[in-house]
Amino acid sequence: MYILALFGNLLIILTVSTDSHLHTPMYFFLSNLYMVDIGFISTTVPRVIVDIKSHCPVISYVGCLTQMSLLIIFGCMDCMLLAVMAYDRFVAICHPLYYQAIMNPSRCAFLLLGCFFLSLVELLLHYGAVLNFSNCGDYIEISNFFCDPSEILKLSCFDTVTNSIVRYCVGALFGLLPISGIIFSYFKIVSSIMRSSSSSGKHKTFSTCGSHLSIVCLFYGTALGEYFSSSLSHSPRSNAVASIMYSAVTPMLNPFIYSLRNKDIKTALRNILSRVF
């Protein structure tokens, strides 16, 4: 899965960067989404591979916090970039005459920096909830294959109800913010499509948005599954399975879903392969 994820994401990034027809805001954000996916899966899976080979699944306290930090940053960046991509589709479909003016290079760079800034804010808020506790003993066990904040809070010797409430509120805030933007954008898109009398235009619009909606459903579906599994289930096995779906399977499938449903990507890939072979 890790090799497929690296290959698929890097291939789409290479395709977008080498084909001038794909130098548009939509593919700019798509390339950054796939770079984030590479970082997301590289935060957990290589460590698991090392643990399997060494038969010693031990991580230091600093290493655990570093892994947790990268997971939060890349996870939040994924959410925010999906919302920005929905906004890009909203502008392209509902305001096509002003698209180039609204989604200019400086605006795209500002939106990307805004995604990164919000990710850092979520990380700091999570740190405030997770770091304020004392663990029991020198060696403690996490019933997961990476350092999830909810698992770390379970290791405390003291009551962490307040910290857990803060963590879930922060997660809900930064989860609902992008999903609200996505829902609003697609509500406007669907309203605009329904007012159109052209059946070919409707089909083209649905085809354009279908790939993005597939990625949104896959990402949020597995993320919510992992979230509720860690909150409601006390089974380490079910928690681990949900976490694998969220942190490994989703980054692997994203580029293949998008490339199989997108004519521009498939055409650019054929051009690259024809030049190579």
Rank of each mutant, 00 (worst) to 15 (best):
M252Y: 09
L11C: 03
L123D: 03
R167F: 14
M245Q: 15
G201N: 03
S134M: 14
L118F: 13
S247Q: 14
S229L: 07
G114K: 03
V276T: 05
L260S: 09
M194H: 02
R107I: 04
L253W: 00
H21S: 14
S134D: 14
G39N: 10
R167A: 06
S238C: 10
S196F: 06
L33N: 08
I189M: 04
V50R: 13
F116W: 12
R237E: 04
V58P: 08
T15L: 01
R237Y: 08
A5N: 07
F40L: 14
P105F: 04
F158H: 12
A248L: 11
S185P: 02
P46V: 10
G39M: 07
P57K: 07
S214N: 06
L11I: 00
A5D: 06
I272G: 01
N254F: 05
S199G: 01
Y139W: 12
S156F: 04
V16T: 00
V170F: 03
I179S: 15
V45S: 07
A223P: 05
V170G: 05
T205R: 02
P255V: 02
F145G: 08
L177Q: 05
R261P: 01
H212F: 06
P149T: 05
L176A: 15
S156C: 05
H234T: 07
F133E: 10
Y99K: 14
Y2T: 03
P25I: 09
F219V: 11
E122N: 03
C79A: 14
V16I: 15
A268Y: 10
L4K: 13
C108F: 08
Y61F: 15
M26W: 06
V276P: 04
I13M: 10
D264S: 09
I49P: 01
N135K: 05
G39V: 02
